[in-house]
Write a protein that binds this DNA or RNA. Structure first.
Lengths: 131, 131
DNA sequence: ATATCTGTATTATATTATATAATACGGTTG
DNA sequence: CAACCGTATTATATAATATAATACAGATAT
């Protein structure tokens, strides 16, 4: 369900957080859907339960999920807030990258063509990169 | 000359590498210009010389600078290669970010307006962010 | 009620990356 | 020759990450 890179310099718990954020934002995991338990997911991924819990704790702190002792962990239903927060953050990153691009010397038209190339890539087949 | 954040999660030597790459690419440091020596820069920044050397070694490996034992370290003159490599890398980042933007639901027009906002920001006053 | 699941918490330990410290060697220059 | 350069090595300290081993309390089904 979650493919992680154990060799990456990026900590496992961070990878988990990012993956789950994406799945929640993209609707793969839907509001109030129950997540795999800390121990079960730890077994499935052959990872220590504490590492899973660390990710879950952070996800709860950021409002992506909520946990009920004795019952389980679930996708939070305030998807709207999470979504717009993500969009805002992405806009900031886009702005920074564009400024860097201009600073280096790229022209507006070049950036536009990249945008359109991205659009075609999305329409074609949706693929992911393993960072 | 180089302002670093010693508290950052990002390692000092990585910060140094990024700063110097920017300064080289942007022409603040010019081809064949001599860089501060390992020991001198270490004193100025109150950092261990080994940390400086680690940054210099990596910068040399990537072709940004060259070092001559007994003489010093200097900005490499193959700026063109470095430059185009940087552009290529930036295009990749831009493409990824655009795909993410489309994936989340942003429209092409929204991205275009961000690009134009970035362009205006550049024309206004050139400022930097401290990541 | 009891076994078994859930989240949560704590303590100890191992591992790795980062950074410092202390030296040392050889080339360059004045 | 003294004072700089880059480079290399070894040891140590520190922090972040991850594992391991427990423990406690709530929920739930048999």
């Amino acid at each position: 369900m979650f493919d992680l890179d154990l060799r990456s310099r990026k900590p496992i718990y961070e990878q988990l957080i990012e993956k789950m954020k994406e799945m929640i934002i993209h609707g793969v995991l839907k509001p109030n859907e129950q997540l795999p338990s800390v121990r079960l997911l730890a077994k499935q991924l052959t990872i220590n339960p504490n590492t899973i819990q660390k990710a879950y704790r952070e996800l709860e702190r950021e409002g992506y999920i909520y946990s009920i002792p004795g019952k389980g962990s679930f996708v939070d239903n305030k998807k709207e807030a999470v979504y717009s927060e993500k969009v805002k953050q992405l806009e900031e990153n886009m702005l920074k990258l564009c400024q860097e691009a201009f600073y280096i010397g790229l022209k507006k038209e070049q950036i536009f063509s990249i945008v359109e190339r991205a659009e075609r890539a999305i329409r074609g087949g949706e693929e992911h990169d393993s960072n």
